[in-house]
Simulated assay, not measured.
Amino acid sequence: MIIGHAGVTLGAADLDEAQRFISDFGLTLKAADEDRLTYQLDEGSIVTVKRADDASLPPPLGPEASVREICWGVDTQEALNALEADLSRDLDVRKDADGSLSFTDPSGIATRLGLFQRKPVLYVPEPINAPDAIRRLGKHRRWRKRAHPKVIQHVVYVVDDALEAARFYMHRLNFRLSDISKGIGYFLRAEGTSEHHSVFFLNKGAVPGAEAPRPDHICFGVEDIDEMMAGAVHMKRQGWKQGMGPGRHRIGSALFYYLKSPLGVEFEYDTDNDHLDDHWQPQEWEPRFGMINWIAGELPPFWSTAPEWDVRYVPNDHPIYEPYQVEPRSAASKVGRG
Rank of each mutant, 00 (worst) to 15 (best):
G7A: 05
V8W: 06
A13P: 13
Q19F: 02
R20P: 07
F25Y: 15
L27A: 01
L29T: 00
A31N: 09
A32V: 03
A32W: 04
D35A: 14
Q40A: 10
D42I: 10
D42K: 14
G44H: 09
I46Q: 07
V49L: 04
R51G: 06
P58R: 15
G62N: 07
P63T: 11
E64Q: 10
A65K: 13
E69R: 14
W72L: 08
T76Y: 05
L80R: 13
A82H: 08
A82E: 13
L87S: 04
D98I: 05
D105Q: 08
P106Y: 04
G108D: 06
R112M: 10
R112W: 15
G114D: 14
Q117H: 08
K119D: 09
L122H: 15
Y123G: 11
P125W: 09
P125C: 08
E126R: 03
P127M: 10
A130H: 12
P131C: 10
R136S: 15
L137N: 06
K139G: 02
R141N: 12
R144A: 01
R146Q: 12
I152K: 00
V156Y: 08
Y157K: 02
V159Y: 05
L163E: 02
L163C: 01
F168E: 06
N174E: 08
L177F: 03
S178Y: 05
S181Q: 11
I184E: 01
Y186I: 03
T193Q: 12
S194R: 15
E195W: 05
H196L: 02
V199M: 03
F201G: 03
F201Y: 12
K204D: 06
V207S: 14
P208W: 10
A212Y: 13
P215E: 07
I218E: 04
F220R: 05
G221Q: 11
D224E: 10
D226R: 10
M228T: 05
M229Q: 15
A230E: 08
A230G: 10
G231V: 01
H234M: 01
Q238V: 03
Q238I: 08
G239A: 06
Q242W: 08
Q242A: 11
Q242I: 07
G245A: 09
G247L: 14
R248D: 04
I251K: 02
S253C: 03
A254Y: 06
Y258A: 06
K260Q: 01
G264D: 09
V265H: 07
V265W: 09
E266W: 12
E266V: 06
T271R: 10
N273D: 09
H279R: 12
Q283P: 04
Q283Y: 02
W285E: 02
W285G: 00
P287F: 15
F289M: 00
G290M: 00
A296T: 01
E298V: 14
P300I: 14
P300V: 14
S304P: 00
P307H: 13
E308I: 11
V311R: 05
R312T: 07
Y313I: 04
V314L: 00
Y321E: 06
Y321L: 07
Y321T: 03
E322S: 12
P323I: 02
Y324S: 04
E327S: 15
P328N: 00
A331W: 01
K334G: 08
K334M: 14
K334P: 09
